[in-house]
């Protein structure tokens, strides 16, 4: 994967998309093969895992904001604890990214006081505060009410336009068309097909891909 590249991973549930991206920051152990992030090989040593996690930001389907902390505290914790930067600097960074996901005015609230879409945007800002080299998105809009999907996708599109390197597990094919450099289709733990979005959507090579696209695009 190149710097600045945007990859969209799709496929039926249970096909291993989430497992794949969870391996990249070692939330899931690797059985075979190897992963290199920004020149660092990911092995089982705590140091390697540490180095890689500093460079990799992640956004989860279920937000996973820390409920006992305010939005601002959610964003400040990791930079202070893991990057060891000062409180004032951490707050300035947090406010900058909260502004960027257009939620700066909610900084003092607790996650439970926000809508799902707002919570997911906070989660994106929280990951950005660590200034990652690559962002992983694990079905970021799947747990959202339909009317909130757009605000999160818009945030992600903004991030993509700013040149962030991204891997997104998502079924939002409009998003894939708009920002992806490559779309990868997985089923039963295997990569079945990959290609540029235009070719991928217009002319899928494999029957399994066609069947999948047919199923999810039927509703659009």
């Amino acid at each position: 994967m190149r710097k600045g590249e945007k990859i969209v991973l799709c496929g039926p549930s249970g096909s291993g998309k989430s497992t794949l991206i969870r391996c990249i920051n070692r939330l899931e152990a690797i059985e075979q093969g190897s992963i290199v992030v920004n020149g660092h090989r990911l092995d089982d040593s705590i140091k390697a895992i540490d180095v890689v996690r500093q460079d990799v930001g992640m956004v989860f389907q279920s937000f996973n904001l820390f409920p006992h902390m305010t939005v601002l505290q959610n964003c400040m914790l990791a930079p202070i604890r893991a990057r060891r930067i000062g409180k004032t600097e951490a707050e300035a960074t947090a406010r900058k990214y909260l502004e960027r996901v257009r939620i700066g005015d909610q900084a003092e609230k607790y996650p439970a006081q926000l809508s799902g879409g707002q919570q997911q945007r906070v989660a994106i800002a929280r990951a950005l505060c660590m200034q990652p080299k690559v962002m992983l998105f694990d079905e970021p809009t799947s747990a959202l009410d339909p009317e909130m999907v757009k605000e999160v996708l818009d945030t992600m599109i903004g991030l993509a336009n700013d040149g962030m390197t991204m891997i997104c597990v998502t079924h939002e094919m409009g998003f894939a068309r708009q920002v992806a450099d490559r779309v990868i289709f997985m089923a039963e733990g295997q990569i079945i097909e990959e290609g540029e979005p235009e070719a991928f959507f217009r002319n899928p090579q494999h029957a399994r891909t066609r069947q999948f696209l047919g199923e999810i695009l039927a509703h659009h």
Binding site: N25, L27, D50, R53, Q54, V56, G57, M58, F60, S62, N64, L65, F66, L77, A78, R81, A82, R83, A123, R126, A127, M130
Partner: peptide
């Protein structure tokens, strides 16, 4: 998910527990 989010943010065991 709380622990996973903390790990993904690069927080160590002591911070994950304490914070």
């Amino acid at each position: 998910g709380q622990t996973e989010a903390a790990m993904a943010l690069g927080l160590h065991y002591s911070s994950r527990m304490r914070d």
